[in-house]
């Protein structure tokens, strides 16, 4: 039984913004951010969602918590379908989000103490001794109680991350969606935050959806990964298997493009050419065909569907070869 189950989710935004947009009919042109997104997160599992900027991964995270309206699809969380704002309001008691910019996601004129107490107050779960509870929350993420008096801008990047973790965990959620949880952190601090998240996961029985462009990081923290390109999931599978043998050409290129900290493994050739196209010019057929080294006529005319190739592996490619798996 999955904790979070997403079926055929799609988000598009109206193209015309501004005052004139207010008077235009709702059927005006829309920009598709993503569509046909289906995946599940099991209880206690960490799913890593990988993609480059423009892939739609951040919008997807927001849509999952009802912060961005969806145009199609269904979100089931904790056994209940989530469709209305009331559903999502209820969902937010047992799911939380960590934002990409830790400092900017903390209201700038409130103290850390006030920020940590806020979810408890909003959901009517504030204990009588709120200060002690706040101190406990700070302690849980490895900060001392005196941090309660500080303002967000007085925190270092790592400290702001820890406050973000504490705030996400305030209501004892079952699912935490973390958008680039280590963006902007030095590698030595990145490890601290990831270890903290992993430690809390086992202690509190959490599930994570971790969104990042950082392949090296996501490889170590995820049980399964999902690769997103230009608004489509192109490959989903167990982390170890996907990194060992990526089946989608984009996943292959992405993994090959990552610079390795070893001068003996320098790449002579180029993993992938071109840049991710604008959402306004999404290629016809397969979204990756404009950059795919293996693209053929079929790829330019027909969009592939996400199909099962081997155990627990899904790939959206006409030509992905399951034979490669059997050699394994």
């Amino acid at each position: 039984m999955s904790l979070l189950d997403v079926q055929d989710l799609a988000v598009s935004l109206p193209l015309s913004l501004g005052l004139s947009g207010a008077f235009k009919p709702k059927t005006a042109r829309r920009l598709e951010i993503f569509s046909d997104i289906s995946f599940a997160v099991a209880a206690g599992e960490t799913l890593g969602l990988v993609g480059e900027s423009g892939s739609g991964k951040t919008t997807l995270a927001r849509a999952l918590l009802g912060l961005t309206p969806t145009q199609a699809g269904r979100i089931t969380f904790d056994g209940r379908l989530r469709a209305t704002q009331a559903d999502f309001a209820q969902m937010r008691r047992t799911s939380a989000m960590m934002f990409q910019d830790a400092v900017a996601s903390l209201s700038p004129r409130m103290t850390v103490g006030a920020l940590l107490a806020e979810p408890l107050i909003i959901h009517g779960q504030a204990p009588r001794d709120l200060a002690a509870k706040v101190a406990d929350m700070l302690h849980l993420v490895g900060l001392t109680a005196d941090f309660a008096a500080r303002y967000p801008h007085e925190l270092s990047g790592g400290q702001a991350r820890r406050v973000g973790v504490a705030r996400a965990l305030a209501l004892n959620p079952k699912l935490v969606i973390a958008d680039e949880p280590t963006a902007g952190l030095d590698v030595s601090v990145q490890g601290e935050i990831l270890n903290l998240m992993r430690d809390l996961k086992t202690r509190l029985g959490l599930s994570y959806l971790i969104i990042s462009h950082n392949l090296a990081m996501i490889r170590h923290v995820s049980d399964r990964i999902a690769v997103m390109y230009l608004g489509r999931l192109v490959e989903i599978g167990p982390t170890r298997a996907v990194f060992a043998q990526p089946l989608h050409p984009y996943a292959q290129s992405l993994i090959a493009a990552e610079p390795l900290p070893d001068p003996r493994k320098r790449r002579a050739d180029l993993a992938i050419s071109g840049e991710i196209p604008s959402l306004l010019h999404r290629p016809k057929g397969c979204v990756f065909q404009s950059r795919c080294p293996q693209a053929q006529a079929l790829c330019r005319s027909d969009a592939p569907v996400l199909r099962a190739l081997g155990p627990n592996r899904l790939v959206r490619c006409h030509f992905a070869d399951p034979a490669r798996l059997q050699e394994d």
Binding site: L67, R92, A96, M97, F99, Q100, S107, M110, H123, A170
Partner: peptide, 20 residues
């Protein structure tokens, strides 16, 4: 982002308006 974060923890519109 902090307004989005407030919405994500379930803050009501009046709360976001007045406190944030």
């Amino acid at each position: 982002e902090f307004i989005l974060a407030e919405r994500a923890i379930g803050a009501s519109t009046p709360r976001i308006l007045l406190r944030h």
